[in-house]
């Protein structure tokens, strides 16, 4: 991408292709952009892989493919069990695992050649709207799970001890809302920042030097998916935990 394109996009750099609207869904008015098509692509790939892999599950894994899927699921469970205990890990595994895969592949989609500049391919997690959506899902899930498991006792930590309630209640509520805000902003700032770094280095010194930020992005893409899921797991575990 030539240098002047950066300026042409008002300095927005990577992620600007999100503005190319392919079509608008009538009635609801939702616009389909590169971000949506990328998300759909990721979903399609993962779901097809999952479907192919689990279509003929054998008691004794006969294919490496099945062994790979089993290792993935089992690995997720072991990992989450180490943070939030085996029982919680089993209960929240589908949610946390899906979140991790979705974010990881979204992050990595930005490393594909032309991402952000080719129509139809933009890393979804480089858009704040997307990460805010994911964080909202986490927020709603945490509240739902907390209330469902513990009923009104879920709110106890905000009004206990009672004489501090006027202070604790607003703080508790603010904290609940800061969490998704921080989750979404941390993710988008990292991915977007990383993409911009790659782009900037690529244009400043096209040879050799861009390898540094590219390798960095491979690491950070995984770390960010990891930390988003890790924090979500902790929030879920705290929501269902009885008095500490």
């Amino acid at each position: 991408m030539p240098f002047w394109l950066l300026a042409a996009h008002g300095g927005e750099g990577a992620g600007a292709a999100a503005r190319d609207v392919f079509f608008t869904i009538p009635v609801v008015g939702l616009k389909v952009t590169s971000i949506q098509t990328t998300m759909w692509g990721i979903m399609l790939v993962v779901l097809v892989v999952a479907w192919l892999g689990t279509r003929r599950l054998e008691r004794v894994p006969r294919t490496r493919f099945q062994a790979f899927l089993e290792l993935t699921v089992d690995g997720f469970e072991t990992f989450f069990a180490s943070i939030i205990g085996r029982e919680n890990a089993r209960a929240f595994l589908p949610f946390l695992g899906s979140l991790f895969i979705f974010i990881l592949l979204s992050n990595y989609s930005g490393l594909l050649p032309g991402a952000g500049h080719v129509p139809g391919l933009t890393a979804p997690t480089s858009n704040w709207g997307v990460t805010a959506g994911l964080a909202s899902v986490v927020f709603v899930t945490v509240q739902y799970v907390g209330i469902k498991r513990r009923g009104l006792r879920y709110f106890k930590h905000m009004v206990d001890p009672w004489f501090l309630a006027p202070l604790l209640l607003p703080l508790g509520i603010i904290e609940e809302f800061v969490r998704p805000f921080a989750l979404s902003l941390r993710l988008v700032a990292n991915i977007f920042g990383g993409e911009t770094v790659v782009l900037a280095v690529l244009m400043a010194v096209p040879w050799f030097l861009p390898v540094v930020p590219l390798l960095l992005e491979v690491l950070f893409g995984a770390i960010q998916a990891f930390i988003f899921t890790f924090l979500t797991a902790i929030y879920l575990a705290t929501a269902v935990a009885e008095e500490h």
């Binding site: 950066l6 770094v197 900037a200 244009m203 540094v212 930020p213």
Partner: peptide
């Protein structure tokens, strides 16, 4: 290392605008 790279990127982007 990445911290310096972020400054690098912001300088680069701002230079264009």
């Amino acid at each position: 290392e990445a911290l310096t790279l972020f400054v690098f990127a912001i300088v680069f982007v701002l230079t264009g605008s």
